[in-house]
Structure formats: C-alpha cells, structure tokens
Design a protein around this nucleic acid. Structure first.
Lengths: 213, 213
DNA sequence: TTCCCCCTGTGATTATGGTCACCGAAGGTT
DNA sequence: AACCTTCGGTGACCATAATCACAGGGGGAA
C-alpha cells in the first residue's frame, strides 16, 4: 500500500494533492533481481516510476545484440514509458531489474490531467526527459568518439557509482554483451587495467581498486 | 511580425489563445544559409521553434569532431533549447541552418505557465521530446550496430528526404565529417554505390539515383 | 594562359577490435 | 574422486576503417 509519508522523501517537489493522487491511483509492483521489466515491442498501459532497487536500460537490435544505455535509480521514471503511454506506442527499450526493485505504476489516463494540474508533475516529467536525453548524448559521445578501453572505464565507473559498490558482479562475457563487444576483447582490456592496478579481476566479478590512475 | 493566420497552419493543435500569446511574445529571427544557430557551451535565454527552412543538429566533442544527429524541420523545436531554457543550462549541441531559416524565439518565462495553461503546448513539448529521443535511439543503433556503408546509405536517405532533393550538396569531406569518418573512406564507399547505380558522384554534390537497389 | 587550390580517386600501410581455436582453472554434481 | 560446465587467458588471424602519400582534374584568380 502506498502512503504519502513514504512517497514524500522520494518526491519532495510534488504537491501534497499530487502525492495523494499517486497514493490513491498508483500500484506498487515488485520485480525480482534479473527480471525484465520492459521488453522491446511491448505496449505500455502505464507509467513506471522506480522507488527502490536499480534498473538497467538497454537498446536492442533485431539480431539480439544489446547495448547498455543508462541506469534508473529510485525517484526516476522511464522517460519512454511516460510518452509511449501517452501515445499508446510500443517500447523501443529493454529494462532489467538488477536488484530487487519496486516501482509505482500509474494508469496513463491520469498523466494528461496531472501535466496541467501539478507543476511538480510537469517538472518531474520534463526533468526526467532532460536527464535521459543527456545520458543518451553521453552514450553517443562514447560510441562515436571513444575507443573500447575508454568505454570500458566509463562503464566501470558508472556501475560502481550506481551499484554503490567496488565489486561489479558481472562476468567478462556479460560486460562484453552490454558494450556490444566480445568477451576476448574485454578480457584483454581488463588485464591491462589490472596491470595498471586499477582493478582486480576475480571469477564472476571485477573489483575496482582505483579507476583514476 | 507574427500573425495568428501564419502560425495556425504550422501548429494546428495549438489553442487560439496560445497562438495569440505566441504572436505577442514571440520574435521572428532569421538565419542565413550556413549560419550557426546554436553552439556547444552557449546559454539559452529563449526557446527556438523553426518555422521555415531546415536545420541540422550536431553533437561535438572537445577535439572538434562533430557528428550529425538529426534535422529540424518547420514546426519542430529544439528539444534541448526548451529544457535548457527552463533550467538555465548550457547547450550541448550545435545547430546549423542549412538553408535560409526562420525561427520563433520565445522568452523562457512563458514556458512554465504555458505548460499548465495549454494542453496544446504541453503536448507539443512532449511530442518534440519524444521525437528527438527516438531519433537519438536510431542514431545509437547505427553507430553501435551498423558499418559505415549502411550508415552512409542512411545518411543519404535522411538528407534526400529532408532536403526534398536528389542532389545532396555536400563534398565527400563534409559528409565524412558529419559521420565522424574520413574523406577517403566516404570516397571509396561512394564509388561502390555509384558502381551499383545507386548514386552519381559529381563535384561538390552527390546525385541520388535509387538507394533501394 | 598560367597558376593554384580544392575536390576526388586510389594504392599501401596501420590500428582497433572481432573471430577462432584451444587451454587451464574453479567449482558444482554425481 | 571423476566429470562437466562455466569462466577467464591467450595466440593467431581477419575485417573494417583510419591514415598516409600522392596523382589528376576542375575551375577560379591573376
């Protein structure tokens, strides 16, 4: 059950009436670690706002290649879900819960009214858009202008920050997949980083020592 | 001077009062062919909505590399300018008028109020966001998953469509720059396309014959 | 006409990263 | 203990595209 007291700290900029409406009309949904929250091609019937846990968002192509784009942390919404919901279009992204995740789903018929009724809501939506947009721009910078070694470093930093942990619990093969590269390449680059003392390579995970050497 | 009669056909979904406000508070600005409308690092004091002409939007990195992302056509707004304006932040994009272009500038202090006052406006803003977002996703697809030859084809199609012309008035070097590649590569790929009968290569421009062979 | 700059074409070389083949080690299962 | 699967390490090779070097042609300027 949703209470205003719980929502308040996550969304301090929301009006009291808005929090009230969210509590009434939103539904809590739980996703297990590793569960897919959204799949390419799926239609939305509601908007998703993450309240607990951590989500990774990917772009996928037709041949099963995938590509890590950004994290969604508590307090953030899937920008696409908001607008797809409005237009009843299909998802172009895949979202995966990487830890146990809790999210509020909000039926889309409220969105329109909230946009004009609550300044807090329209700022939230626009702010989310802006942030996702900027992350996409950063992603483009990396794949357009940077080599794999720099991209791997960036990936490790991002994960360290969002996971709030110096242990990145993914295999070389998984990391390779998320960067649209291959295991061998990641393995070699990882060794270079280990030689510089930036990471320690373990089985099933990477330990980050210091990425700024 | 702005009149409602002129604005109406470009923005059929806007309320009469909104059109009235745009006519009162917006200012027309003209840009010559080739003029930079927006530069990385610049601050916005207003939102730009293109009314005539054609604009190319690029991403730039620190070393002067640039990267074509999408076109802005009449009736479209620079998504970033809208939100940067709101937050008083700086541009992360470069926009160049590629033909004589006319745009309405709207002082940013109206935006907030319009978002809640006019459904037409908030839908316009969100719709623009959505479209730019999708174009960015397409861009990411191409640089992440496709080779230069496919990217060149896509580039030619896009330009043909937006320029509404079978003559793409750019040199190989310019195209290379926009795709973050090099002249020689484009030159060779262009020759391949010519061999297949898809294009004819001229000095200073490319003639598109049929890109679907 | 001559000169020169810009645009294009092309071969040779190089670098980055993807692919293939294979190995060995960790760790769970029977 | 024997086996198997998964993960990581590594050398050889290949493909794509970036870089280098240089040649030739068009077209404007003097």
């Amino acid at each position: 059950m949703l209470t205003i007291a719980e929502l308040q700290p996550l969304f301090p900029m929301f009006e009291k009436e808005l929090l009230q409406e969210i509590a009434e009309k939103g539904t809590l949904r739980n996703f297990e670690e590793g569960e897919l929250m959204m799949k390419t091609g799926q239609y939305f019937r509601s908007t998703l706002i993450v309240t607990k846990g951590l989500v990774k968002v990917f772009r996928e192509d037709d041949e099963g290649n995938e590509f890590f784009m950004y994290f969604l942390e508590p307090g953030q919404a899937c920008a696409l879900s908001m607008i797809c919901a409005l237009k009843q279009e299909r998802s172009e992204l895949t979202a995966k819960a990487i830890s146990a995740t809790e999210a509020i789903t909000i039926p889309l018929d409220n969105m329109d009214r909230w946009m004009s009724a609550y300044k807090g809501w329209s700022q939230f939506v626009l702010g989310n858009y802006r942030n996702r947009f900027e992350e996409l721009l950063t992603t483009i910078d990396h794949i357009a202008f940077r080599n794999m070694d720099e991209r791997l470093l960036f990936y490790l930093r991002k994960n360290q920050q969002s996971l709030k942990s110096d242990f990145i619990p993914f295999t070389h093969a998984e990391i390779a997949h998320e960067l649209n590269s291959s295991r061998e390449v990641i393995s070699r680059l990882m060794k270079k980083l280990a030689d510089k003392g930036m990471v320690r390579v373990h089985r099933q995970n990477i330990e980050i020592v210091n990425l700024n050497l």
